[in-house]
Protein backbone atom coordinates (compact mmCIF):
# COMPACT_ATOMS: atom_id res chain seq x y z
CA UNK A 1 0.00 0.00 0.00
CA UNK A 2 2.65 2.47 1.13
CA UNK A 3 4.79 1.53 -1.86
CA UNK A 4 1.92 2.14 -4.21
CA UNK A 5 1.37 5.57 -2.78
CA UNK A 6 5.07 6.32 -2.92
CA UNK A 7 5.22 5.18 -6.52
CA UNK A 8 2.25 7.34 -7.39
CA UNK A 9 3.89 10.30 -5.72
CA UNK A 10 7.11 9.67 -7.62
CA UNK A 11 5.25 9.54 -10.93
CA UNK A 12 3.30 12.61 -10.00
CA UNK A 13 6.43 14.56 -9.22
CA UNK A 14 8.46 13.29 -12.15
CA UNK A 15 5.85 14.11 -14.77
CA UNK A 16 5.90 17.89 -14.34
CA UNK A 17 9.69 17.89 -14.27
CA UNK A 18 9.81 16.05 -17.55
CA UNK A 19 7.21 18.34 -18.98
CA UNK A 20 9.11 21.43 -17.96
CA UNK A 21 12.15 20.11 -19.75
CA UNK A 22 10.08 19.31 -22.81
CA UNK A 23 8.19 22.59 -22.73
CA UNK A 24 11.28 24.74 -22.46
CA UNK A 25 11.94 24.60 -26.17
CA UNK A 26 8.63 26.08 -27.30
CA UNK A 27 8.76 29.72 -26.14
CA UNK A 28 11.98 31.37 -24.99
CA UNK A 29 12.04 31.63 -21.23
CA UNK A 30 12.76 34.98 -19.56
CA UNK A 31 14.85 35.99 -17.80
CA UNK A 32 17.53 34.15 -19.75
CA UNK A 33 19.63 33.84 -16.60
CA UNK A 34 18.36 33.56 -13.05
CA UNK A 35 19.58 36.34 -10.73
CA UNK A 36 22.28 35.23 -8.28
CA UNK A 37 21.06 35.16 -4.68
CA UNK A 38 22.89 37.68 -2.53
CA UNK A 39 22.92 37.99 1.23
CA UNK A 40 21.07 41.05 2.49
CA UNK A 41 21.08 42.62 5.92
CA UNK A 42 17.28 42.57 5.97
CA UNK A 43 16.89 38.90 5.00
CA UNK A 44 15.96 36.20 7.49
CA UNK A 45 13.88 36.22 10.66
CA UNK A 46 16.04 38.81 12.44
CA UNK A 47 16.94 40.92 9.44
CA UNK A 48 17.29 44.69 9.94
CA UNK A 49 17.99 47.58 7.63
CA UNK A 50 21.56 48.67 7.13
CA UNK A 51 20.79 52.39 7.48
CA UNK A 52 24.07 53.43 5.91
CA UNK A 53 23.19 51.34 2.90
CA UNK A 54 19.70 52.84 2.69
CA UNK A 55 21.18 56.35 2.83
CA UNK A 56 23.57 55.46 0.01
CA UNK A 57 20.64 53.97 -1.89
CA UNK A 58 18.74 57.22 -1.47
CA UNK A 59 21.76 59.07 -2.83
CA UNK A 60 21.88 56.80 -5.89
CA UNK A 61 18.16 57.27 -6.38
CA UNK A 62 18.33 61.05 -6.06
CA UNK A 63 21.37 61.51 -8.26
CA UNK A 64 20.76 58.87 -10.92
CA UNK A 65 17.37 57.17 -10.97
CA UNK A 66 15.08 60.06 -10.06
CA UNK A 67 15.64 61.64 -13.46
CA UNK A 68 13.27 59.07 -14.94
CA UNK A 69 11.77 56.94 -12.14
CA UNK A 70 9.12 58.21 -9.76
CA UNK A 71 8.76 57.17 -6.13
CA UNK A 72 5.14 58.19 -5.73
CA UNK A 73 4.19 56.49 -2.48
CA UNK A 74 7.16 57.53 -0.37
CA UNK A 75 6.96 60.82 1.54
CA UNK A 76 9.97 62.81 2.73
CA UNK A 77 8.81 62.27 6.30
CA UNK A 78 9.42 58.52 5.80
CA UNK A 79 13.14 59.23 5.46
CA UNK A 80 13.50 59.38 9.25
CA UNK A 81 13.46 55.55 8.93
CA UNK A 82 16.84 55.86 7.21
CA UNK A 83 18.37 57.42 10.31
CA UNK A 84 17.98 61.06 9.31
CA UNK A 85 16.92 63.66 11.88
CA UNK A 86 13.76 65.74 11.48
CA UNK A 87 15.86 68.76 10.47
CA UNK A 88 17.82 66.78 7.88
CA UNK A 89 14.53 65.57 6.42
CA UNK A 90 13.27 69.15 6.32
CA UNK A 91 16.37 70.27 4.51
CA UNK A 92 16.15 67.38 2.06
CA UNK A 93 12.48 68.13 1.42
CA UNK A 94 13.23 71.80 0.88
CA UNK A 95 15.73 70.90 -1.84
CA UNK A 96 12.83 69.58 -3.93
CA UNK A 97 10.25 71.69 -5.74
CA UNK A 98 6.73 70.37 -5.45
CA UNK A 99 3.54 71.47 -7.13
CA UNK A 100 0.84 72.79 -4.85
CA UNK A 101 -2.38 74.61 -5.33
CA UNK A 102 -4.64 75.88 -6.51
CA UNK A 103 -3.84 79.22 -4.86
CA UNK A 104 -6.46 81.96 -4.32
CA UNK A 105 -6.18 82.87 -8.00
CA UNK A 106 -6.98 79.26 -8.92
CA UNK A 107 -3.54 78.47 -10.25
CA UNK A 108 -1.09 75.69 -9.42
CA UNK A 109 2.28 76.88 -8.20
CA UNK A 110 5.68 75.50 -7.27
CA UNK A 111 7.01 75.69 -3.76
CA UNK A 112 9.73 74.14 -1.60
CA UNK A 113 9.00 70.63 -0.40
CA UNK A 114 7.93 69.95 3.19
CA UNK A 115 8.37 66.69 5.10
CA UNK A 116 4.74 65.82 4.48
CA UNK A 117 5.13 66.00 0.70
CA UNK A 118 5.72 62.95 -1.45
CA UNK A 119 8.72 62.58 -3.75
CA UNK A 120 7.84 64.62 -6.85
CA UNK A 121 7.61 62.57 -10.04
CA UNK A 122 9.97 63.40 -12.91
CA UNK A 123 7.14 63.35 -15.46
CA UNK A 124 3.65 64.79 -15.30
CA UNK A 125 2.00 61.51 -16.30
CA UNK A 126 2.67 58.07 -17.74
CA UNK A 127 2.21 59.30 -21.30
CA UNK A 128 4.83 62.00 -20.88
CA UNK A 129 7.16 59.48 -19.27
CA UNK A 130 6.71 57.03 -22.13
CA UNK A 131 7.14 59.75 -24.77
CA UNK A 132 10.41 60.94 -23.26
CA UNK A 133 11.80 57.41 -22.93
CA UNK A 134 11.35 55.87 -26.34
CA UNK A 135 7.86 54.53 -25.74
CA UNK A 136 8.50 52.63 -22.48
CA UNK A 137 7.49 54.47 -19.31
CA UNK A 138 10.07 53.92 -16.55
CA UNK A 139 8.28 52.05 -13.74
CA UNK A 140 7.56 53.65 -10.39
CA UNK A 141 9.96 52.57 -7.62
CA UNK A 142 7.53 52.48 -4.68
CA UNK A 143 6.69 48.79 -4.90
CA UNK A 144 9.13 47.53 -7.49
CA UNK A 145 11.14 45.41 -5.06
CA UNK A 146 7.99 43.37 -4.46
CA UNK A 147 6.78 43.54 -8.06
CA UNK A 148 9.77 41.73 -9.53
CA UNK A 149 10.25 38.09 -8.75
CA UNK A 150 11.79 35.32 -10.79
CA UNK A 151 9.98 32.01 -10.24
CA UNK A 152 12.05 29.45 -8.35
CA UNK A 153 10.50 26.53 -10.23
CA UNK A 154 10.05 23.03 -8.83
CA UNK A 155 11.22 21.97 -6.28
CA UNK A 156 12.91 25.27 -5.42
CA UNK A 157 9.64 26.93 -4.48
CA UNK A 158 9.15 24.37 -1.72
CA UNK A 159 12.63 24.92 -0.30
CA UNK A 160 12.09 28.69 -0.38
CA UNK A 161 9.49 28.29 2.37
CA UNK A 162 12.01 26.75 4.73
CA UNK A 163 14.98 28.93 3.81
CA UNK A 164 12.70 31.97 4.17
CA UNK A 165 13.84 33.31 0.81
CA UNK A 166 12.04 36.61 0.38
CA UNK A 167 14.62 38.76 -1.41
CA UNK A 168 13.76 37.87 -4.99
CA UNK A 169 13.12 41.54 -5.76
CA UNK A 170 16.45 42.99 -4.58
CA UNK A 171 18.31 40.07 -6.14
CA UNK A 172 16.61 40.80 -9.42
CA UNK A 173 17.33 44.53 -9.32
CA UNK A 174 20.99 43.96 -8.52
CA UNK A 175 21.33 41.35 -11.25
CA UNK A 176 19.67 43.61 -13.81
CA UNK A 177 21.79 46.66 -12.99
CA UNK A 178 25.04 44.70 -13.11
CA UNK A 179 23.94 42.42 -15.95
CA UNK A 180 24.31 44.60 -19.05
CA UNK A 181 26.64 42.89 -21.52
CA UNK A 182 27.33 42.41 -25.21
CA UNK A 183 24.66 40.32 -26.91
CA UNK A 184 25.63 36.80 -28.00
CA UNK A 185 27.05 36.54 -31.51
CA UNK A 186 24.42 36.72 -34.20
CA UNK A 187 21.71 38.24 -32.05
CA UNK A 188 20.17 41.30 -33.64
CA UNK A 189 19.72 44.16 -31.18
CA UNK A 190 16.65 46.26 -31.95
CA UNK A 191 16.90 50.04 -32.22
CA UNK A 192 17.11 51.61 -28.75
CA UNK A 193 17.41 48.26 -27.01
CA UNK A 194 20.09 47.01 -24.63
CA UNK A 195 20.87 43.35 -24.16
CA UNK A 196 20.51 42.08 -20.59
CA UNK A 197 20.05 38.38 -19.85
CA UNK A 198 18.52 39.17 -16.45
CA UNK A 199 15.65 41.31 -17.77
CA UNK A 200 12.40 39.67 -16.72
CA UNK A 201 10.30 39.87 -19.85
CA UNK A 202 12.60 39.99 -22.87
CA UNK A 203 16.24 39.82 -23.93
CA UNK A 204 16.46 43.58 -24.38
CA UNK A 205 15.27 46.56 -22.43
CA UNK A 206 14.93 50.23 -23.30
CA UNK A 207 16.82 51.49 -20.26
CA UNK A 208 20.49 52.18 -21.07
CA UNK A 209 22.96 51.01 -18.41
CA UNK A 210 22.27 53.68 -15.77
CA UNK A 211 25.31 53.19 -13.54
CA UNK A 212 29.03 53.36 -14.00
CA UNK A 213 31.88 53.25 -11.50
CA UNK A 214 32.34 56.51 -9.62
CA UNK A 215 29.16 58.20 -10.86
CA UNK A 216 27.88 58.73 -7.32
CA UNK A 217 30.25 59.97 -4.60
CA UNK A 218 30.03 58.14 -1.27
CA UNK A 219 31.38 59.91 1.78
CA UNK A 220 31.54 56.88 4.09
CA UNK A 221 34.36 55.14 2.23
CA UNK A 222 32.16 52.52 0.60
CA UNK A 223 33.55 51.47 -2.80
CA UNK A 224 32.03 53.49 -5.63
CA UNK A 225 31.39 50.58 -7.98
CA UNK A 226 28.42 49.57 -10.08
CA UNK A 227 28.05 46.43 -7.99
CA UNK A 228 27.88 48.44 -4.77
CA UNK A 229 25.51 51.02 -6.25
CA UNK A 230 23.24 48.22 -7.46
CA UNK A 231 23.16 46.64 -4.01
CA UNK A 232 22.43 49.96 -2.32
CA UNK A 233 19.63 50.99 -4.65
CA UNK A 234 18.08 47.50 -4.40
CA UNK A 235 18.11 47.71 -0.60
CA UNK A 236 16.62 51.19 -0.78
CA UNK A 237 13.86 49.91 -3.06
CA UNK A 238 13.11 47.07 -0.66
CA UNK A 239 12.72 49.60 2.14
CA UNK A 240 10.52 51.79 -0.06
CA UNK A 241 8.31 48.80 -0.89
CA UNK A 242 8.09 47.38 2.63
CA UNK A 243 8.89 50.12 5.16
CA UNK A 244 7.45 48.09 8.06
CA UNK A 245 9.50 44.96 7.37
CA UNK A 246 11.62 45.09 10.50
CA UNK A 247 8.62 45.85 12.70
CA UNK A 248 6.80 42.98 11.03
CA UNK A 249 9.58 40.49 11.73
CA UNK A 250 9.99 41.65 15.32
CA UNK A 251 6.25 41.33 15.94
CA UNK A 252 6.33 37.96 14.22
CA UNK A 253 9.01 36.67 16.54
CA UNK A 254 6.93 37.52 19.61
CA UNK A 255 3.81 36.02 18.04
CA UNK A 256 5.56 32.78 17.08
CA UNK A 257 7.10 32.39 20.54
CA UNK A 258 3.73 33.04 22.14
CA UNK A 259 1.95 30.56 19.88
CA UNK A 260 4.63 27.94 20.51
CA UNK A 261 4.19 28.25 24.28
CA UNK A 262 0.42 28.30 23.91
CA UNK A 263 0.54 25.15 21.78
CA UNK A 264 2.64 23.34 24.36
CA UNK A 265 0.22 24.42 27.11
CA UNK A 266 -2.78 23.20 25.13
CA UNK A 267 -0.99 19.96 24.36
CA UNK A 268 -0.48 19.18 28.03
CA UNK A 269 -3.98 20.37 28.94
CA UNK A 270 -5.37 18.08 26.29
CA UNK A 271 -3.30 15.20 27.62
CA UNK A 272 -4.54 15.85 31.12
CA UNK A 273 -8.16 16.00 30.00
CA UNK A 274 -7.96 12.88 27.86
CA UNK A 275 -6.25 10.93 30.63
CA UNK A 276 -9.63 10.84 32.39
CA UNK A 277 -10.94 8.67 29.54
CA UNK A 278 -8.59 5.83 30.41
CA UNK A 279 -10.71 4.98 33.45
CA UNK A 280 -13.54 3.81 31.20
Amino acid sequence: MKKLVAAALAIGLAAPLASVAAGAADIPHYPIKDPPRLSWSFAGPFGTWDKGQLQRGLKVYTEVCSGCHSLNMVAFRNLTDLGYSEDQVKGFAASHQVTDGPNDQGEMFKRQGKPNDYFPAPFANTEAAAYANGGAAPPDFSTIAKARAVESGFPGFVFDIFTMYTTKGPDYVHALLTGYQDPPKGMRVPQGGYYNPYFHSAAFLKMPPPLSDGVVKYDDGTPETVDQYAKDIAAFQMWAAEPHMVERKETGFVVIIFLAIFTVLIYYTKKAIYSRLDDH
Binding site: P139, D140, T143, A147, A149, D160, M164, K249, I256, L259
Partner: peptide, 23 residues
Protein backbone atom coordinates in the same frame (compact mmCIF):
# COMPACT_ATOMS: atom_id res chain seq x y z
CA UNK B 1 -2.04 29.36 13.50
CA UNK B 2 1.68 28.75 14.05
CA UNK B 3 2.06 27.95 10.37
CA UNK B 4 -0.25 30.83 9.44
CA UNK B 5 1.80 33.26 11.55
CA UNK B 6 5.01 32.07 9.90
CA UNK B 7 3.64 33.11 6.52
CA UNK B 8 2.02 36.34 7.69
CA UNK B 9 5.11 37.64 9.46
CA UNK B 10 7.98 36.12 7.53
CA UNK B 11 6.75 35.30 4.02
CA UNK B 12 3.66 37.44 3.54
CA UNK B 13 4.06 37.70 -0.23
CA UNK B 14 5.11 34.13 -0.88
CA UNK B 15 1.61 32.92 -1.73
CA UNK B 16 0.73 35.96 -3.83
CA UNK B 17 1.90 36.94 -7.28
CA UNK B 18 4.56 39.64 -7.71
CA UNK B 19 2.70 41.23 -10.63
CA UNK B 20 -0.05 42.32 -8.28
CA UNK B 21 2.33 44.94 -6.89
CA UNK B 22 2.14 46.65 -10.28
CA UNK B 23 -0.88 48.87 -10.69
Amino acid sequence: FLVFAYFVFYMPNYLGHADNYIE
